[in-house]
Amino acid sequence: TETREFDNEEEARKEAERLRRKGQDVQIRKKGNRWELRRT
């Protein structure tokens, strides 16, 4: 599992969408005042 953190939700969602188009399974969750993007 690979995780990346983003400062805002929009960036996290854009990156998640990009990875999903490549066929990756991605989850986003709020972590304090940041957003965590998890690739499984």
Rank of each mutant, 00 (worst) to 15 (best):
R21G: 09
T1V: 13
E2Y: 14
L19F: 05
T40L: 13
E36R: 02
R13L: 14
N33D: 14
E11N: 06
E10R: 07
E15L: 04
W35L: 02
G32Q: 03
T3F: 12
R20G: 04
R39D: 13
E17L: 10
K30F: 05
Q27R: 08
K31W: 03
D25A: 12
G23W: 03
V26S: 04
R20D: 00
E36F: 09
R29Q: 11
L19Y: 07
F6M: 02
T40F: 10
L19P: 00
R18Q: 08
E15A: 08
W35A: 00
G32E: 05
R39Q: 14
D7H: 06
E11H: 05
G23T: 01
T1A: 12
K31Y: 04
V26A: 05
E10T: 08
E5K: 06
K22S: 12
R39G: 13
R4N: 07
I28L: 10
E17K: 09
E36A: 02
K14L: 11
R21P: 00
E36L: 07
A12R: 01
Q27F: 11
E11A: 09
G32K: 04
E2K: 10
E10I: 09
R34W: 06
E9L: 14
N33I: 03
K30P: 05
K30L: 04
L37A: 03
N33F: 04
L19V: 02
E5P: 03
R20Y: 05
R21K: 10
N8Q: 05
G32S: 01
G32N: 06
T3W: 15
E9Y: 15
T40I: 14
Q27L: 11
W35D: 01
T40N: 10
R4K: 11
V26P: 02
T1P: 13
D7N: 06
R13E: 10
G23H: 04
N8D: 10
K22V: 10
E5T: 13
A12M: 03
Q27D: 08
K14T: 11
R4L: 15
K31M: 09
N8G: 04
R34Q: 08
E9I: 13
E11K: 04
R20V: 05
R38E: 12
A12K: 00
D25E: 12
E17N: 11
A12F: 00
R39A: 15
E15V: 08
I28C: 07
G32V: 00
N8W: 03
G32T: 00
N8T: 15
D7M: 07
A16Q: 07
N8S: 14
T3K: 09
T1D: 12
F6K: 00
W35G: 02
K30N: 05
K14Q: 13
D25R: 12
A16S: 04
F6R: 01
A16Y: 13
E10A: 10
R39L: 15
E15T: 05
E5M: 14
D25M: 14
W35P: 03
R34T: 05
L19D: 00
R38L: 15
R4D: 06
E5D: 09
T1W: 15
E36Q: 06
D25W: 13
T3V: 13
L37G: 03
T40E: 08
R38F: 15
E15N: 03
R20Q: 06
Q24V: 15
E17F: 06
K30C: 08
K30E: 03
R29S: 11
A16K: 04
L19G: 01
K22P: 03
R39H: 15
L19T: 01
Q27A: 08
K14S: 10
G23Y: 04
Q27E: 14
E2R: 11
R4M: 14
A12E: 00
A12S: 01
G23Q: 02
Q27Y: 13
K22D: 11
K14Y: 10
N8M: 04
W35S: 00
K14I: 12
E9R: 08
R38K: 11
T1M: 12
D7G: 05
R18N: 08
E36Y: 11
D7C: 13
Q24W: 15
N8R: 05
T1N: 12
K22R: 12
E11I: 04
L19K: 00
R20F: 05
L19H: 03
W35Q: 00
R21Y: 06
R29Y: 13
G32I: 00
N33Y: 04
I28G: 01
K31V: 14
E17Y: 08
T3P: 11
G32H: 02
F6I: 01
N33W: 03
E10D: 11
R18G: 05
E5R: 07
N8Y: 05
T1R: 10
E9S: 03
R38M: 14
D7W: 07
K30S: 04
K30I: 04
Q27W: 09
G23D: 03
Q24A: 10
F6D: 01
R13K: 11
V26T: 05
E36V: 12
N33L: 05
V26K: 01
R20T: 05
A12T: 02
D7L: 07
R13A: 08
K22M: 15
K30R: 11
T3Y: 13
G23P: 01
E5S: 13
E2F: 14
I28E: 00
R38Y: 15
E5V: 14
W35N: 01
K22Y: 10
R18T: 07
L19R: 03
W35K: 01
E11P: 02
R4E: 08
R39M: 15
K14A: 14
W35T: 00
R4Q: 13
E17S: 09
A16T: 02
E10S: 07
E36G: 02
F6Y: 10
R13S: 07
G23N: 03
R4G: 05
